[in-house]
Every structure is written in C-alpha cells, then in structure tokens.
Simulated scan of single mutants.
Amino acid sequence: EAPKGPPGKWIDAATTEHGDLLDIIRESLGLRSFREVAEEARRFLKLPRSERQSSPTLVRPTVPAGSQKAALRLFAISNPIGGTAVETYLQRRGISRIHDDGSLRFHPRCYYRADEHSPTETWPAMIARVTDLDGRITGVHRTWLDPGDFDRKRLGKAPLDTPRRAMGDLLGNAVRFGVVDDVLAAGEGLETMLSLRHVLPTLPMAAALSASHLAAMLLPTGLRRLYIARDADAAGDAAQAILTQRAEAVNIEVIPLSPQLGDFNEDLQIFGSDALRAAMRLQLAPEDFVRFLHRSTVTAG
C-alpha cells in the first residue's frame, strides 16, 4: 500500500520505510544515480511519478557496490535451489545428488551488466555463499545460467562474456560444504567440489573459486589432513604447491587428489559416479576411506 499524503511526498516515504529495498535495487541493477534508483523503486512499489525531485538528504547512504553487505543482501533475497534452474544445471553436469548444506541459492532474475556503459540484462543465477572460518558470510559468487540451452562449450552457463563473478571479501575464504573436524578437501571450482561431494557427501569440502584464492585459503584450527583437489593445469599445480607449503608449515598432512581429465566434474560426466568413487578409494588415506567413502557408499545404498 502506498504511503498517505501528497503524491510529491510518496517517494520520500518510500526512501524512509523501504531503505533496504533501495539498496537492493541499486546493487542488483548496478545503478549509480539516485534518480535511477528512485524510478525503479516507484515502478516496483507502483507509486506515481512525482513532479519534483526527492530531497537527497532523505536517502540513507547506499551500500557500496560489490561490498560484503551487498553480498549478504543478495544471498538473503535469493531462494533455495530445489526445483530450480540451479538444480537442473547441476544435474546436467552429472551432479544428481547435491549436498550443498544450504550454501547455494537461486535468483530467478539476477542482474548482469557487462560494464558501466552496457545495458542491464537479467538471467537466472546460482548464488554461492562465501564464508570465513567462523561461518560468517563475507561474499557471494554468481553463476549466470542459460535456462533453455546446455551445450558442451558453455555447459549450461549463460552466453555472457563473464558468466561467473564474485562480490565481497573472498581472500582467505571459501564456499563451504559440511562442518570441518580434522579432515578437509579443498579445491577451486564449485562444480569440481560438488562432483566430489556427489560421491563423498560426508567429507567436508571447500571451494575457493580460483587457483589464486585456493593458494591463499585460510586453514581451520585443528585440521590434521588436507586433501587438495587440483585442476590439471599450470594454475592448479601452482596453487597446490603454495597451499601444500603453507599447510605443511603448520604440521598438516597434505594429500593431492588428481583427476584423470581436466577436473573432477569432467571425470564425473565422462566416466560416471562409480568410476569417480573407485578413483577416490585409491587416493584417500585408508582410514579416510572407511570414514568417508565407505560410509557414503552405505548411505547412498
């Protein structure tokens, strides 16, 4: 319901009562001026256009674009992934059992702008929660999706120049699946780690989102063994070497997990779940096979 009073004051009331909405509109659309944000707010709230401009002094300070607070708000307004394009996207990539522990969400019309001079587009998107070691959200990662097409080149991502983007504070942090005790598997991409999670749903995992962020990922206190799910390329080799050195310096045992092809999602798609599970049986420490792989097999059965 629109605020009461002269039409010229309605947008002023909206800025006071719906300040969070203005911040979300600004961040989602990538708008820079108050006039643009106010116009979109009028449309959303179905308010009439005013003949005068609102006083800028009535507008709360907006959330900086790409900030941690903006990331938190984007995750909050997104939806669970069940029955959405995110679930379909992951299943098409061979991940039929999605053990995401609430770290993934779906936004049906996530705004995308190639640059500040380009028009705004809307695409469905997978929103991944980036957290620190204490579980606080520090950022999000967006993967824009093509709702109608899945080809071997884009693998279901939207036909955009940069269909993946992160916002917030990523350095040292990660998208986390499961609660870490003394063993952790860490790697780069979401699909890589979700592919391993598909066959090892009880093994805690973390996706650092890039090779450089994997190398810099902070390690939890009490960690005894670290599995590094490397990508088979030069950047993956470098990230593994740096993270191994950092982990061994604090007496953490490091065991690399190596895919047969480029990464573990490619392995899952080409060879299937049973082959990936068999490969993990050969690479896990014997006690972790019993603890994670055997338990996961029994649970799946």
Results as ranks from 00 to 15, higher is better:
K4L: 13
A13D: 14
A13I: 02
G19N: 07
G19H: 08
D20C: 15
L21N: 15
I25F: 11
S28K: 10
V37R: 03
E40N: 13
E40M: 12
L45H: 14
S50P: 13
R52Y: 12
R52E: 08
S54D: 15
T57M: 14
L58T: 13
R60L: 07
A70F: 09
R73P: 00
F75K: 00
S78H: 02
G83Q: 02
A85W: 08
T88L: 14
S96G: 13
R97D: 12
I98N: 09
H99P: 00
D100N: 04
S103W: 02
H107D: 00
E116W: 10
T120G: 11
E121M: 09
P124T: 07
R129L: 00
T131R: 00
D134R: 01
R136P: 00
G139L: 09
H141A: 10
R142S: 04
W144I: 07
L145P: 00
D146S: 06
D151V: 14
G156D: 04
L160M: 02
P163E: 08
D169A: 12
R176P: 01
V180P: 07
V183A: 04
A185V: 07
G187V: 06
A206I: 04
A211I: 13
L214Y: 09
G222Q: 04
L223G: 01
L226C: 02
L226E: 01
I228T: 04
D231T: 02
D231Y: 03
A232V: 02
A238W: 07
Q240D: 11
A241T: 05
Q245R: 12
E253K: 10
L257A: 05
L257Q: 06
L257Y: 10
L261K: 03
I270C: 07
I270Q: 10
D274M: 02
R277F: 11
A285I: 03
P286L: 04
E287S: 11
F289Q: 14
F292H: 05
R295V: 13
S296Q: 09
V298K: 15
A300T: 08
